[in-house]
Simulated scan of single mutants.
Amino acid sequence: MTTSLSSAALDQLFCEARTHNAFAREPVPEATLRHLYSVMKWGPTSMNCQPARLVFVTSAKGKARLAPALSPANLDKTLAAPVTVIVAIDTRFYEHLPTMFPAYDAKPTFAGNAELAASTAARNGTLQGAYLILAARALGLDCGPMSGFDAGKLNAEFFPDGRYQANFLCNLGVGDRAALHPRGPRLTFEEACEIA
């Protein structure tokens, strides 16, 4: 077992981290986004399938393309955020398995089973989205993940060939702590867990 992270690190990742709805007008450099991906990509996925695909929307033109798909409650905060990440999944992730998972030929397992491919992509792509949030927090960025958008409109605009499918959105930047809502409670161990 490796050494446990410090309390300060755990606070930054989990205990004191918050979901942000407002951000400072401080841009996030492309180098930071590249570093973010270089960290998050190491999180485990089944058979190293890595189905997540990310679109970092940073420009006014990109935000204008995104805006029609956003719910009214998410429109203003998303347009104002320095970065909005479209966390999508590659429905044909298995085409990369011969390289990503050379242990044996797993590609036919998914290529011939659309239901298995879809559930594997959804599960592991969501897992990678969580790694994105943790990696962003580890690098000092604040996050505002959300699901309030019209997936059909977003997919038609950003992924018209249908191969990629939007999963969720996540705003990134330097959060405005003054705009935070009171923190919601969490379930206790007894409410959420059991040891069998």
Results as ranks from 00 to 15, higher is better:
Leu116Lys: 08
Ser6Phe: 09
Ile133Pro: 00
Ala111Ser: 15
Asp176Arg: 02
Ile89Pro: 00
Gly144Glu: 10
Ala114Tyr: 08
Ala151Ile: 08
Pro27Ile: 01
Arg123Lys: 14
Val83His: 01
Pro27Trp: 01
Ser4Phe: 06
Pro108Cys: 03
Phe23Ser: 03
Ile133Thr: 02
Pro82Gln: 04
Thr78Val: 04
Cys49Thr: 12
Thr120Val: 10
Cys170Pro: 04
Val83Phe: 04
Leu75Trp: 02
Ala136Met: 04
Pro72His: 05
Thr188His: 03
Ala118Phe: 03
Ala121Tyr: 10
Ala9Trp: 06
Gln165Tyr: 04
Thr32Ile: 12
Phe168Asn: 00
Ala22Arg: 14
Phe101Lys: 08
Ala138Asn: 08
Cys15His: 15
Gln50His: 12
Gly112Phe: 07
Tyr37Trp: 13
Gln12Tyr: 05
Tyr131Gly: 05
Ser7Cys: 01
Arg34Ile: 05
Asn124Glu: 14
Phe110Ser: 06
Gly62Pro: 07
Ala114Gly: 12
Pro27Arg: 01
Asp105Pro: 05
Gly162Trp: 06
Glu30Ala: 15
Ala106Val: 00
Thr58Ile: 02
Arg177His: 11
Arg53Leu: 04
Ala103Ile: 12
Glu191Ser: 07
Thr99Leu: 13
Arg123Pro: 06
Phe189Lys: 14
Trp42Ala: 11
Ser7Ile: 08
Ser7Thr: 12
Pro29Thr: 13
Thr126Ile: 09
Leu33Pro: 14
Arg25Val: 04
Ala196Ile: 12
Leu79Thr: 02
Phe110Glu: 03
Leu66Val: 00
Ala135Ile: 06
Pro160His: 08
Ala117Ile: 03
Leu97Gly: 02
Leu33Gln: 10
Phe93Ser: 13
Ala121Val: 03
Ala64Tyr: 09
Met146Val: 01
Asp105Ala: 06
Ser6Asp: 13
Gly144Met: 09
Arg183Asp: 13
Ala8Lys: 13
Thr2Gly: 05
Thr32Ser: 14
Pro145Asp: 11
Thr2Pro: 09
Lys61Leu: 08
Ala192Leu: 07
Ala67Arg: 15
Asp176Thr: 00
Pro68Asn: 07
Val39Arg: 01
Ala52Ser: 03
Asp176Ile: 01
Arg65Phe: 06
Thr3Ser: 15
Ala103Thr: 15
Phe101Pro: 14
Pro185Met: 00
Asn124Gln: 14
Gly152Thr: 10
Pro68His: 11
Ala122His: 12
Tyr37Ile: 06
Val85Gln: 05
Thr78Phe: 02
Arg123Asp: 09
Ala64Asp: 14
Thr2Cys: 00
Arg92Gly: 05
Gly148Arg: 00
Ser71Thr: 10
Asn155Leu: 02
Ala17Thr: 11
Phe56Lys: 06
Ala156Leu: 05
Thr126Gln: 13
Thr19Leu: 09
Ala196Val: 13
Cys15Pro: 07
Asn74His: 03
Ala179Tyr: 03
Pro102Trp: 03
Val83Trp: 01
Phe159Leu: 05
Asp176His: 03
His96Thr: 14
Gly112Asp: 13
Thr126Arg: 10
Gly148Tyr: 00
Gln50Trp: 06
Gln165Thr: 12
Arg186Phe: 06
Ala151Trp: 08
Asn74Trp: 01
Gly152Lys: 09
